[in-house]
C-alpha cells in the first residue's frame, strides 16, 4: 500500500469516514501493524492541534479600513457612473455628431498625410502626369518623353531637353529653380506648364525664352508618370 493510500485511510478513519469492508480491513491493519498505529497517533495529534488553534480576532482597525476601501470604491464607482451618464447624455442626441467628428478627424488625418506625401513628392519633383502626356512606365530607363505637345529628350547629364533646342540655346538657358517662387509660378500657373510633371532638370522654350527648370533637389526614385 502506498503512503498516500495509507494516509487517506488513516485520515478517513479519524473522521469516521470508513464504512463496511474498508473499515474492517483498516481495523485489522491497525491491530497488525505497529507503524500504522504510530501514524494514526501522529495524525490524531495533528488534528487535535489544528482543532485547538485559537481563533484570532481581526485587528480592531480592520473594519475602518474596510469601510474606507468601500467608500473609496464607491466614490470611484460614482465618478465612473457620472462619466458614463455624461457620455450617455452626449451619445443619444449626438451620435451622428460623434460619427461626423470621427469621419472628419480621419479625413483631416488622411489630408495631412497626403500633404505630407505631396511635400515628399515635391522633394522628388513628381507631379501628376499631364493629360496629354505620354506615360512612361519605367521613367528611369526612358530616353524621351512626350509632354503635352513637347518632346523631351534625355541628355547624358540627365537633363530633359526639349526637342529642337540647339546646344547654344540650352547653354544660354535662363535657370529657374523649381521650388523657387518663379519656378512654382511657372509650374503652377503658366498655361503651358500647369499640371505638367517635372522629372528632373528640364530645358524648354517658353514664349521665345529658353528656360532651364532645375529641380534643385536630389532626384529620388521616380514613382509616377510624367
Amino acid at each position: 500500500m502506498s503512503q498516500q493510500a495509507r494516509a487517506e485511510l488513516i485520515s478517513a478513519y479519524l473522521d469516521d469516514q470508513l464504512q463496511g469492508e474498508e473499515a474492517e480491513r483498516f481495523e485489522r491493519l491497525l491491530k497488525e501493524d505497529e507503524s500504522v498505529r504510530r501514524e494514526v497517533e501522529g495524525m490524531r495529534h495533528v488534528v487535535s492541534n489544528l482543532r485547538h488553534l485559537e481563533r484570532m480576532a481581526p485587528p480592531p482597525t480592520l473594519n475602518q479600513h474596510v469601510a474606507r476601501r468601500i467608500a473609496l470604491a464607491g466614490e470611484q464607482r460614482s465618478l465612473l457612473d457620472r462619466i458614463e451618464t455624461g457620455m450617455a447624455g452626449i451619445q443619444t442626441p449626438s451620435n451622428n455628431f460623434l460619427m461626423f467628428a470621427l469621419v472628419f478627424t480621419l479625413a483631416v488625418i488622411v489630408y495631412l498625410f497626403a500633404v505630407y506625401l505631396n511635400q515628399d513628392s515635391h522633394l522628388q519633383v513628381i507631379f501628376d502626369a499631364p493629360e496629354k502626356g505620354a506615360i512612361v512606365e519605367d521613367i528611369e530607363g526612358a530616353t524621351s518623353v512626350l509632354m503635352g505637345s513637347r518632346l523631351f529628350l534625355r541628355q547624358t547629364d540627365g537633363r530633359w531637353v526639349e526637342d529642337g533646342l540647339t546646344a547654344a540655346e540650352v547653354e544660354a538657358a535662363q535657370t529657374v529653380t523649381a521650388d523657387s517662387a518663379a519656378g512654382r509660378e511657372l509650374l503652377e500657373h503658366h498655361p503651358d506648364l500647369k499640371g505638367l510633371t517635372l522629372l528632373g532638370d528640364a530645358v524648354f522654350k517658353l514664349h521665345g525664352d529658353v528656360i532651364e527648370l532645375k529641380s534643385s533637389l536630389v532626384h529620388g526614385p521616380v514613382h509616377g508618370g510624367l
Partner: peptide, 10 residues
C-alpha cells in the same frame, strides 16, 4: 486532499 495535508503536517 485532507489526508495528504494532514500527512504532510504529521
Amino acid at each position: 486532499r485532507i489526508a495528504r495535508g494532514r500527512d504532510r503536517l504529521r
